Amino acid sequence: MRLATIRQPDGTTRAAVEYNEQWFQLDVASVSDLVTLPTWRALASAAINDSTAPRLRLSDATLATPLPSPRKIVCCGLNYHDHIAETGRDVPEYPTLFAKFGDTLTDPYAEINVGADSQKVDWEAELAVVIGSSLRRATKAEAEAGILGYTVANDVSYRDWQARTLQWFQGKAWDATTPVGPVIVTADEISPKQGLAVTTSIDGEVVQSSNTRELVFDAADLVAYVSQFTQLSPGDLILTGTPGGVGLGRSPQRWLRDGEVLTTTIEGIGSLRNQFRISTTEGY
């Protein structure tokens, strides 16, 4: 099943389910709201079978970030073998975690306005895990069963801010800089453990090309680990880390430039496409 949040002409949003090359819209504002309902699968199925349900062709829909209001967003760094190699670090014994706020997220095709805030804007393609049930101190098997599905994210990073201290948070949590989407694909349809291609390109030039088989801690590992110290709820997000090929790891280092388009693709899910607006004037 493929789920999305569709932006209406009046600016409101509605959750939708894909079927037969169409989006069938539900009477729920977003996928964030939908997945908190115990009967969400039945509601989605009913919409597909309802001849009066509003629907749109895939090409006519304006997609918003599918999860506009997660209670928690937990991110993992240094979680791909190839990315660890390019940073010169050791493979970690435990996941390296940090958090984002909900307003860090933005739409899958949004323009991202950096302005003069950063001169070292980097890209980080990431598989994002969508939580489907309440989890606390879950075993790996329970965590795997509690995964609703997967989507695409890019943990756009302001490396000049990130490098100011040993803590990464200030370089990772700028408002409206983390695109997520375009859809959520339920866990019964794709398997990161079997391997999904992860690709990032800038104006068509491929800069990241890897596979989820490179993950050190897989989706269930991360969900189980995070649930040991905090309650996870339906609609929460876990970002699983980025593969090699980031700008920081290049020689010479490479940063996003004004007007460039960043495309982030994960096999079986889809692509984000974000143009960047970056001033050449130094910010604070």
Rank of each mutant, 00 (worst) to 15 (best):
114 V>Y: 13
271 S>C: 00
174 W>E: 13
9 P>Y: 15
211 N>S: 15
174 W>I: 03
236 D>Q: 06
92 P>N: 00
23 W>H: 09
52 T>E: 15
78 L>P: 01
108 P>N: 11
266 I>V: 08
10 D>G: 06
6 I>S: 02
4 A>R: 10
29 A>R: 12
284 Y>A: 13
96 T>C: 14
186 T>M: 01
4 A>V: 11
95 P>I: 10
130 V>L: 08
226 V>S: 05
227 S>K: 01
172 K>M: 01
114 V>G: 08
191 S>H: 12
6 I>W: 15
269 I>G: 04
230 T>S: 07
164 R>E: 03
154 N>G: 07
240 T>W: 04
180 V>H: 12
273 R>Q: 11
43 L>M: 09
102 G>Y: 15
280 T>P: 11
15 A>W: 02
71 R>E: 06
112 I>L: 14
46 A>C: 03
229 F>G: 15
226 V>K: 06
186 T>C: 05
156 V>L: 14
274 N>Q: 13
91 V>E: 15
82 D>N: 01
258 D>Q: 08
253 Q>D: 05
218 D>V: 02
26 L>N: 09
67 L>Q: 12
6 I>E: 11
126 E>T: 06
231 Q>C: 12
279 S>Y: 08
98 F>V: 09
128 A>E: 02
228 Q>E: 15
62 T>L: 14
185 V>L: 15
130 V>C: 00
269 I>V: 04
135 L>W: 03
275 Q>A: 04
77 G>T: 11
110 A>R: 07
2 R>G: 14
263 T>I: 07
